[in-house]
C-alpha cells in the first residue's frame, strides 16, 4: 500500500451558488473521517473533488507533496491511490460480478493477488458469475467494495455506502471499513446516518459549504 499525505486547503466550489467554501482537510494513512450533512449541502461534491473526479474552483490540493492542478486528468492518481464506494454501487450492469471487480486492472495493467483474498473475505464466490441486476443491495455493495480494494488503494472514498442497506448489511460494511482502517487505509465516508458516522475517528459536519468538526 502506498503512503498517503493528502491536504486540501481553502478549497471552494460553486455551481449556481457556492457549494464549498474555504474547506480544509488533511488525510493520512489510517485516518477515518465521516462527513455528515443535509441533502444537497455539497458532501458528494467534496468527495468527488477528493477523488479527483470533479475539478475545484479555488484552493489547493496537495497529494504526497505534489500540488495538483484542478483541470488536469488525474486518472493515474485515481488508479494508484483511490478506491470509490458509492451509495448506488455504480457497477456496470452488462458485466458479471467478477468482471466488475477486475475492471480496475484493465487500467493499471498490473497483476494482483488480492482478488482471491477479497472474494474469500467478502464471501463473493457464489456471486462471481452472476450479472449485477440479479444481486441484492448488500451483495452489490460487497462487490463494489471488492472492486474498490482490488488495487490496494491507500484512500477509500465512500459516498453513503450504507444508505441503501439494512442494519445487518450496514454493520458488515462498517466493520469492514474499520478493518481496512487498521490495515492503514484512510477512509472518508459520507453519510446521513449519525450512528454509522460514529464508526469513524473523526466526524465532520458540512453546512453552508463550510466544513466543521462536531
Amino acid at each position: 500500500m502506498e503512503a498517503l499525505d493528502l491536504q486540501i486547503s481553502h478549497l471552494s466550489k460553486a455551481y449556481h451558488k457556492p457549494v464549498l467554501q474555504d474547506v480544509c482537510l488533511a488525510l493520512r494513512n489510517g485516518s477515518f473521517v465521516s462527513i455528515l450533512g443535509r441533502s444537497g449541502c455539497g458532501k458528494s461534491t467534496l468527495l468527488n473533488i477528493l477523488g479527483l473526479i470533479e475539478p475545484w474552483d479555488r484552493g489547493e490540493y496537495v497529494l504526497n507533496g505534489r500540488t495538483l492542478h484542478r483541470r488536469e486528468d488525474h486518472s493515474r492518481l485515481r488508479q494508484k491511490y483511490i478506491g470509490f464506494v458509492f451509495q448506488s454501487y455504480h457497477l456496470i450492469p452488462t458485466l458479471s460480478c467478477r468482471e466488475n471487480i477486475l475492471l480496475p486492472l484493465l487500467y493499471s495493467r498490473q497483476r494482483t493477488k488480492r482478488f482471491e483474498a477479497l472474494v474469500e473475505r467478502l464471501e463473493l464466490e457464489p456471486l462471481l458469475h452472476r450479472r449485477v441486476p440479479t444481486l441484492s443491495g448488500g451483495e452489490k455493495q460487497r462487490v463494489a467494495i471488492a472492486r474498490a480494494l482490488l488495487q490496494d488503494p491507500c484512500l477509500i472514498l465512500a459516498d453513503e455506502p450504507t444508505g441503501n442497506l439494512d442494519p445487518k448489511n450496514r454493520d458488515v460494511i462498517l466493520s469492514l471499513f474499520r478493518q481496512e482502517q487498521k490495515e492503514g487505509r484512510a477512509i472518508v465516508m459520507i453519510t446521513h446516518d449519525a450512528e454509522a458516522a460514529r464508526a469513524a475517528d473523526q466526524v465532520l459536519h458540512l453546512e453552508g459549504g463550510v466544513l466543521c468538526e462536531t
Binding site: I92, Y107, S108
Partner: peptide
Amino acid sequence: RYEIGIKRALGAGKGT
C-alpha cells in the same frame, strides 16, 4: 455515458 463515468472513476484515462 454511465459506463464511461464508472470506468473513468476507476482510473481509466481519456486515452483508454
